[in-house]
Design a protein around this nucleic acid. Structure first.
Lengths: 351, 351
DNA sequence: CTGAAAGCGCTTACAG
DNA sequence: CTGAAAGCGCTTACAG
């Protein structure tokens, strides 16, 4: 008799074989009952059900999935979710996959490629049926091919590095255009984008949308004025600081995100400039606190919950139809004009 | 020959048996090599390694875990993570378990018991080795006993419903005492707690800590004045609204959390009351935007990252030593006095 | 030093 | 209507 390992007093788990024994049927039959098969008469169903509850049997879905050669598990690899925008995306993905019977693995990279490699690797080894990835900055198509080459399908969310994988994101060009249009209607001046991760597709698209939107207007928008920074409040504060210290004091600051905008507000005030008065401020995302700021923050809603749901749906479609050409789904943004730009305009027009 | 299911063109996955075949060894030997066994001579190691990379073999950890009768998987069931506090807790748990080779399942309940039941059930069926639970309001010990009775260990985080499960949370009594002490030093007046989920252990503890802290001071603190509300900005705004509409205009508002405090700020301003001047405001958590508000928000830091790490460690200890008596770990809070209370005091003292 | 066998807990043809 | 057998991809005594 083997020595019982210390601290392992667990009662042996009851298995489907135990249930079958108790019900006086074979494991096959018990399994069929679990599957709700109509081949089994109600009386047998009943006996098995009884055995299940008498023994307190709990279905081992992992074992079942192994036999079925799928895991009914999906991985979500994100950079960081302290920005409520990404928290909403995460919850929407979790809800979306849960509805379809999947359970979600989650891992964080803090925007580091090596951590991303580790997380994806772990999930692939665990046989996830698919992966939603919010790519770390600098991710390349080769990185991913190596990781999921013949493995599970992957959908990129919010940023993309390759068109050969599915992608779900905000329509950044349109979002930027909406904002530009709104700002142009308020007056002219020097305008910059502050923040956003260097070289990310989302930032590039917003820059491009702004460039087009301001082109030929009274707004003076130079891409070379814009400064990249991590997508959080601290990034916003530092980015703006760097800008002002280099001698640029813009009339309009477009923050890369509401999270970034919080830092912009704080930094302006640190310099005795009142947001929305000395300087208009606008941003992207429209997370709840945009409208709780004073002055309320003009923002282009990018609908994180829709994004997460869409990503979950797309991935699940892809799992069942791996051959379809890769898809891009863009979420339509919505402009939310508020005091942080509108009041500034009022001031301008009375000059 | 069976009809190939449509959309299943996947190359058959390469298995350890394939690797063994290629390397000219048995599956046992190949497995030993994977495990880094020293019983196998370097030459054999080499042959197996070569076969692995030639075939692009990826280790099936799920199958291994099945054989080993553990899943190396942990479940985290949370209410909602749009509050950055809980987002930090989540990331810390994920990082903490990842370090030890576990991967994290995540599911959300939005504070509903039925959803919680579903999530826990799914995770138990998937054979998680342990669960971290941020309990939904109204969870009972019986709920959980039924769900994880003979199943995986569970640690409660942030709120508890039973002392017979492990628990990690802020030292709420102490946090409230710190805040009370600080406020008493600034003057007197009517003080209320706004927000926090009805009947949650954390709210009860904070109420009790405040009661003790204000007892016998010039502060007028009545538990009956305090109003419960969901732990978010909207809850803060509505809670305060309800209070003021019932005729109570406090001198000091203690919000249940920084998230709640955001709503309190907004609601005060909606009523033309300036936070920190007409009315001091303080709260709990110290998430980044507490110090980005104007006026900067006095808060008691409750260290979500430490909490998450501690919960991960505790759960992992518990997995290896299921018999140890259940533990309670309280995280030491830190008072961060800022303008939202300090300025108010200045005003008061010049009256 | 290495391999054959059994087994983790399921499901699914297949046969009866 | 039901059961015996094989197999999902691993690991681990055990034997040689």
């Amino acid at each position: 008799m083997p020595h019982s390992p210390k601290g392992e007093p667990k009662v042996a788990k009851v298995t489907l074989a135990d249930v079958a024994l108790r019900a006086g049927v074979s494991a096959s039959t018990a399994s069929l009952v679990l599957g709700g098969s109509t081949r089994i008469p109600p009386a047998t169903h009943e006996r098995v059900r009884a055995a299940i509850s008498e023994l307190g049997y709990v279905y081992n879905r992992a074992a079942a999935n192994m036999r079925l050669r799928k895991s009914m598990t999906i991985g979500f690899v994100a950079t960081d979710i302290s920005n409520p925008y990404f928290a909403d995306v995460t919850m929407a993905i979790a809800d979306g996959v849960h509805e379809k019977g999947y359970t979600l693995f989650t891992g964080f990279t803090r925007d580091r490629r090596d951590a991303q490699h580790e997380q994806i690797d772990a999930m692939v080894q665990r046989q996830v049926d698919g992966i939603v990835l919010l790519p770390a900055s600098g991710t390349t198509e080769q990185d991913l091919d190596a990781l999921v080459g013949n493995g599970p399908p992957l959908v990129q969310i919010n940023r993309y590095f390759s068109r050969s994988y599915d992608y779900v994101g905000p329509d950044n060009l349109r979002a930027a255009a909406l904002l530009a249009h709104h700002l142009v209607s308020l007056g002219g001046g020097r305008v910059v984008l502050v923040g956003g991760p260097e070289g990310s597709s989302a930032r590039e698209e917003r820059l491009e949308g702004l460039r087009q939107g301001f082109d030929g207007t009274e707004m003076n928008f130079q891409i070379s004025d814009c400064v990249a920074a991590p997508n959080n409040a601290d990034g916003g504060a530092r980015g703006l600081s760097q800008l002002i210290d280099s001698g640029i004091l813009p009339d309009v600051i477009i923050a890369y995100s509401d999270a970034t905008a919080m830092g912009v507000y704080a930094e302006l005030r640190r310099r005795n400039l009142e947001p929305g008065r000395e300087c208009a401020v606008a941003s992207f995302d429209d997370i709840p606190f945009a409208s709780l700021q004073i002055p309320q923050l003009t923002s282009v809603a990018t609908h994180p919950i829709d994004m997460g749901h869409e990503a979950a749906q797309l991935l699940i479609r892809r799992i069942s139809e791996p051959l379809r050409p890769s898809e891009t789904v863009l979420i339509e943004p919505t402009l939310k004009p508020r005091a942080s730009t509108v009041l500034w305009r009022a001031r301008n027009s009375t000059l």
